[in-house]
Design a protein around this nucleic acid. Sequence first.
DNA 1: TTGACAATATCGACAGTCGATATTAATATA
DNA 2: TATATTAATATCGACTGTCGATATTGTCAA
Lengths: 102, 102
Amino acid sequence: MAREAFQTLTEPMYYILLALTQEQCGVDIMAKVKEISKGRVSVGPGTLYAMLQKFNENSVVKITRSEGAKKWYIITPRGRDMLTAERERLWVQYQDGELLEQ
Amino acid sequence: MAREAFQTLTEPMYYILLALTQEQCGVDIMAKVKEISKGRVSVGPGTLYAMLQKFNENSVVKITRSEGAKKWYIITPRGRDMLTAERERLWVQYQDGELLEQ
DNA sequence: TTGACAATATCGACAGTCGATATTAATATA
DNA sequence: TATATTAATATCGACTGTCGATATTGTCAA
């Protein structure tokens, strides 16, 4: 049986989904990721468009409209759930590192 | 030019290094990762031994002693710095997800 | 129509993950 | 001493995701 997809989100995935809490087209997502991460993270086109396809196939994201090749995306409820779960996981992982302080 | 190694640590890497804040051999690391993560994370041998080699080559970890094939490892100061940096990154990424709450 | 541009899509090389399996070494037992 | 058992490490191949370079597609202005 196929392993559950997107068990833990990678950093690019996380910021792509965060960007898609508002409708955005591809290039806007790249800009938005930079904005949300205050310049720390940048996602290249190879990663982005491959991921958008995978996310779309898995109903994590959906296409809202398209003009020619240009497409707009937004996160789905399922995607939001994944994002929330991932955020909690980040918190737990951060907490598990507390033994560094000792 | 080679890209800087270990820019962001993956979840397995993070817990392996956390386990190595005390001297451990391979199988003990696997057990320790489970313990630290309260059962949430488990690292298989394929991931572990490949990573230990890479970490060792990059002075993230060092071998303290060996008996036959069995080796003990511990984190280096460089490894500790990486772990601290990664922990801060996790916190930042968590914070960047705050816009989900709005 | 053509040229420039904006946006999306694809490509190949690479890093890391994973469980299954192989190898190695120490120990127990006949 | 041989041999079986066990514990631990090491390797393998398939797979997912990343990345920047490049190709493709579509739009608009001249």
